[in-house]
Simulated assay, not measured.
Amino acid sequence: MEKNKTEVVAVLDENSEVIENERIVQFSRPYSFEGKEYEEIDLTGLDNLTASDMIAAQKVLERSGSFSVMPEMSLEYACIIAASATSQPVEFFKGLSPKDAIKIKNRVTGFFYGAD
Rank of each mutant, 00 (worst) to 15 (best):
N106L: 12
I24H: 12
T109S: 14
S28W: 04
G114Q: 13
P30H: 03
P71C: 02
F27R: 11
K5D: 07
N48I: 00
T86C: 04
G114D: 10
G35I: 00
S74N: 07
R63A: 08
A78I: 01
Q58R: 13
D53F: 00
Y31W: 09
T6I: 12
K105F: 02
Y113Q: 09
D13E: 06
A51L: 11
V11Y: 12
L43W: 07
E76D: 13
A51M: 11
E17L: 07
F33N: 10
Y38F: 13
L46T: 07
S28C: 02
A10R: 15
A82V: 04
F67M: 13
A10T: 14
T50R: 11
A57V: 05
M1I: 05
I102K: 15
I81C: 01
R107W: 01
S84H: 06
G95N: 14
G65L: 03
Q26Y: 05
E14V: 04
T6L: 12
A115E: 15
F111C: 05
S16D: 11
G65Q: 07
R63G: 05
S84G: 08
M70L: 09
I80A: 07
F67Q: 15
T86M: 04
N48T: 10
S66D: 13
A10Q: 15
D42G: 06
D47T: 11
F33M: 06
A56C: 06
T6G: 07
Y77I: 04
K103G: 01
F93D: 12
A57T: 06
E22K: 10
K59H: 11
S87D: 14
N21C: 01
M1N: 09
Q88V: 01
S84Y: 03
E39C: 00
E14Q: 08
N106Q: 14
C79L: 04
A115Q: 13
S97H: 10
I102D: 14
S97P: 02
F67N: 15
I41L: 05
S68R: 10
A82N: 05
V8M: 10
